[in-house]
Design a protein around this nucleic acid. Sequence first.
DNA 1: TCCCAACATTGGACTAGACCATTCAAGATG
DNA 2: CATCTTGAATGGTCTAGTCCAATGTTGGGA
Lengths: 244, 244
Amino acid sequence: MTSPDRPAAREPKYYTVKRHLLTSIEALEPGSLVATERELAAELGTSRTTVRQALVELVAEGRLVRRQGSGTYVAEAKMTWPQDLSSFTEQAEANGLVPSSRLLASARIRADDDVASMLNVSRGAPVYCVERLRLGDEQPIAVESSWLSAQRFPRLGIVMRRAGSLHAVLASDYGVRLRKGEESIETVPASPEHAALLQTDTGSPLLVVKRRSFDAERTPVEWSTSWFRGDRITLVASLGKRAR
Amino acid sequence: MTSPDRPAAREPKYYTVKRHLLTSIEALEPGSLVATERELAAELGTSRTTVRQALVELVAEGRLVRRQGSGTYVAEAKMTWPQDLSSFTEQAEANGLVPSSRLLASARIRADDDVASMLNVSRGAPVYCVERLRLGDEQPIAVESSWLSAQRFPRLGIVMRRAGSLHAVLASDYGVRLRKGEESIETVPASPEHAALLQTDTGSPLLVVKRRSFDAERTPVEWSTSWFRGDRITLVASLGKRAR
DNA sequence: TCCCAACATTGGACTAGACCATTCAAGATG
DNA sequence: CATCTTGAATGGTCTAGTCCAATGTTGGGA
């Protein structure tokens, strides 16, 4: 009674625009300039808002880059990011990048319920929260927040102000070698703060990696959360024995 | 000359709405009805479009669920999904769910460049493409596409029409036991087709897991891609030695 | 020649509305 | 009492426009 042959999935108009753009993009080199939003709207007989919705998704997929005042460009290929090495420094070097960090914040605070259970300390116990922007070849890769017990690692806040690698400090100053434990991965829209740090748009999808690390005696030592740009990064892990 | 104290990250209006909603949501039980879009727009002195943009992100984060004609509700908690077991069947059972599958398509096609290199066969060689909807307790969890060499696994298309578990078939009918190789994880917006299958919205962020599996002789056997709803699933892997 | 101010153009954010599809409850009908 | 019809309310999609912020070009002045 409704429609004779019902399409399996009704396609919104913006999605038609998106597919049209996708085929145009495929023929172009990374860095090429794409038509302006107003041009596309006129050309495809639609509104700028609808064109914009298609562009938002293509940007989220890492196919396009928009620069206000300048134009929309075909994006560079995504970067792959290994997950099986222990530290950011190692992972960056495996990717052929020069790793660096900017210390955003380092505070001695009291553990809330989440942090307390993850570090196996009592609620309210003093913990260090170290927040860093991680860079590869001076380009922002991830924002990373780490929590560690302040009782176990006294003066960590002072030590971190001069050091680059947290894991190196733990090994040299405290004699702790980390092994990774559970890791969880999900996707969330970027907050304005994270977007600004990662030089992307508010609301664009990020990959969030939460990880707990243990020492040789299986005591939880570090609880960390990393935010990666979903449009620039593909996380890669080799699961079985190592590949090469 | 521009502004006396520049805020670190200018907050869009829709983000203020989002934070307002987030605090309201936190006090509510999953399943609770939230105010309508038009009410919120009037109440917060903004347009429905802006309210909608905030809702889109909260839905993407898995905090809210919208039902056309009915209303907007507080969502159930996300489901965690293990990554360290070999098959979907095992993973579902580890989660306490009854696994099932719907065979969407099963075709014998010629390998394109990507598939050929992943399976280590020549371009144009015959391969099977098996596309399945994976369910846990009858709820859609993931869409999964697998490619396997048709030369190595003759009559796989016929066999799969009756079988549920691909890995079980490989073991029983062909004597192959798989071990996992590299795995990559990224996030993409849902196509209308995937959205319909996973009962979510077109454009909502999905987690895409691509994986290559090998046999005991380290020959690539299966190349698969899985799409998970990013608002419902958190991927979990235990990295070091097994946790328990 | 060099620098800087003015301006046109781009994407970014937002508005106020239209129309549609789905849901669900209230009321009419058997 | 059960069933069907109707219609109001909801979210889904799209339009056509405004104003703003960032960019890059152009032309005038030192």
